[in-house]
């Protein structure tokens, strides 16, 4: 699935990294607990979260993730967006809630990873 398709399916808008929209991603995970994200390395490329602090971007970076989706219409502060821009990570804000957002991506073919 392309990052652009994720944005479309979740009715999301890019906060940064729209230029990476054509990048293909194959798996995702959803969590507000960064240590849980760090505990299960599976080559996931997308992180869905309701957290908006800089450690979300750092966690994604450590995991080599390429896209973060902020659910429930959340928009992180500018410093977080700047950090993601520096790291080359796409940020999307979606009005969907966690359960729906994960369900929509899953049913459209995005999987939890191996």
């Amino acid at each position: 699935m392309k990052i652009n398709e994720i944005a479309d399916i979740l009715e999301g808008t890019f906060l940064t990294g729209a230029e990476f929209g054509e990048k293909e991603v194959f798996s995702a995970c959803g969590s507000d607990m960064m240590s849980d994200v760090l505990a299960y390395v599976k080559d996931q490329a997308v992180l869905l979260t309701g957290l908006c602090n800089p450690q979300v971007v750092r966690t994604a970076e450590m995991m080599d993730m390429v896209c973060i989706v902020f659910i429930r219409g959340k928009k992180p502060p500018k410093e977080v967006i700047d950090l993601a821009e520096k790291k080359g990570i796409a940020l999307i804000s979606s009005p969907r809630r966690m359960f729906s957002a994960c369900g929509l991506l899953y049913s459209n073919g995005l999987k939890p990873g191996n």
């Binding site: 507000d32 607990m33 960064m34 240590s35 849980d36 760090l38 505990a39 390395v41 979260t49 957290l51 602090n53 450690q55 979300v56 966690t59």
Partner: peptide, 16 residues
Amino acid sequence: NLGFGAGMGLPNMKKY
């Protein structure tokens, strides 16, 4: 509330 403190820090360090 910041996404840490779930008691996974040291176990994760040992794991990786």
